[in-house]
């Protein structure tokens, strides 16, 4: 079964993602969407901006998807992450996993988002009404 990853400038269509993974062998489809939140650390966020070290993102995602397939009994996996401006309310990341059973679908979906947060070289800037800040930099 296939696993794919894409970086995208355009909004993520979760229905298309789900339709892309479902087969008649699957009894479970797990979907995770990370969405741009209007309040962060007590400040009002206007939009998010993402950037990536693209060749390394692809290499890390290949490793993460391979490791997910080893740990969970799953069918197809699709992951999309946005680059550039993401308005409030839109999804910045979408993950769908098809599997015969729910425990593997949910576990694999969780595994993928947790590894992305931990080690994939993508950076998020929160733009406020009165300035902006790269998240996690401690600046």
């Amino acid at each position: 079964m296939s696993a794919s990853f894409a970086l995208a400038a355009d909004p993520i269509d979760p229905v298309a993602l789900v339709e892309g993974v479902r087969t008649d062998e699957d009894g479970a489809l797990a979907t995770f969407l990370g969405t741009a939140r209007v309040v962060s650390r007590g400040r009002r966020v206007v939009r998010l901006e993402y950037e990536a070290y693209e060749p390394m993102v692809r290499a890390e995602m290949d490793r993460i998807l391979a490791e997910t397939r080893e740990r969970f009994h799953v069918g197809a996996i699709r992951v999309v992450h946005r680059l550039g401006v993401v308005p409030i309310g839109e999804a910045s990341v979408g993950i769908v996993v098809a599997a015969p059973h729910r425990a593997d679908a949910l576990g694999a979906c969780r595994h993928v988002i947790d590894r992305i947060k931990e080690r994939v070289p993508i950076w998020k800037k929160e733009v406020f009404e009165d300035g902006s800040e790269w998240v996690g930099e401690g600046a």
């Binding site: 070290y53 290499a59 910045s92 070289p121 993508i122 998020k124 790269w134 930099e137 401690g138």
Partner: peptide
């Protein structure tokens, strides 16, 4: 494209990327 420790020797033509704490997702 591979994470390395700070004492990693460099070679001519290497691409060295400084990666701030990641914040994707």
């Amino acid at each position: 494209l591979v994470q390395v420790p700070p004492d990693r020797p460099l070679r001519e033509g290497d691409e060295v990327a400084f990666l701030p704490p990641v914040s994707g997702g």
